[in-house]
Design a protein around this nucleic acid. Structure first.
Lengths: 120, 120
DNA sequence: TTATCATATGAACAACTGTTCATATGTTCA
DNA sequence: TGAACATATGAACAGTTGTTCATATGATAA
């Protein structure tokens, strides 16, 4: 948020006050791990395509696989990962398993990401 | 955005109309690759900590390394990655290289991510 | 110039990840 | 029940990634 201008480091290039301040404000490891896991889910093309497809419509595994030209197995593996990360949910209807988005933040993240890459 | 309710797939579990529609609407590979690269940058704890530190204040490599209890080399490697992804920029001031955030979307993405993980 | 410090970079290695393949589970229908 | 199909899952393998270590570059000051 606020950017402070503190001048150059004195001791071995380390500005002690700033370092102490930053150390105190950094998120705890647990939070960082959670954030990391969340963003990793978006860091794969297959998963991004699945999420984008599910933005359009709830779909079964075979439909997703056909849409992405991938094997149902590969898609199923990734759906499992996404479900573990609480990004998608599923319901059974006969033989099919229908998947849909399970989070209101997904579209926001994708939109901001798209905004970023289209602005340069 | 809009979710349409189309009923169950008929042919080998594939609902052809839906698949055709989704195939048409999915982002092209190039865009997906760009998105993937962007989110991958956020999918690592070290890089997340660096970005969070730079939210607080512009910092030199040694200060970041000290704040994160990591080697300057490891930090420098990750700064290079972040710079390649246009998330940070740097300026020289004497021996030091000062890094700062180079994108208005970073804080938005981090905030939404934090919102997600704190809501469950 | 030479010494020193801050940073950058290349190689190497271990750890992680995504796909494939084989197989298992679960559901429907004959 | 048994056959067919949709999905799930485990093992394995190749490709990727992040750190360390050694070394190189660039800058300042003596």
């Amino acid at each position: 948020m606020s950017k402070e201008k503190i001048d150059t480091c004195k001791v071995s290039c380390i500005h002690e006050d700033l370092v102490a301040k930053v150390k105190k404000e950094l998120l705890p490891n647990e939070r960082i791990d959670d954030l990391q896991s969340l963003f990793k889910l978006f860091g794969d093309g297959t998963r991004l395509l699945i999420l984008q497809a599910l933005q359009i419509c709830e779909m079964c595994v075979c439909d997703i696989a056909a849409s992405l030209d991938m094997s149902p197995s590969a898609v199923s593996h990734q759906l499992r990962v996404l479900k573990g990360g609480r990004l998608v949910k599923s319901r059974r209807e006969g033989k099919q398993a229908y998947y849909s988005l399970d989070d209101e933040h997904i579209e926001q993240l994708l939109d901001i990401g798209l905004d970023h890459i289209s602005h340069q």
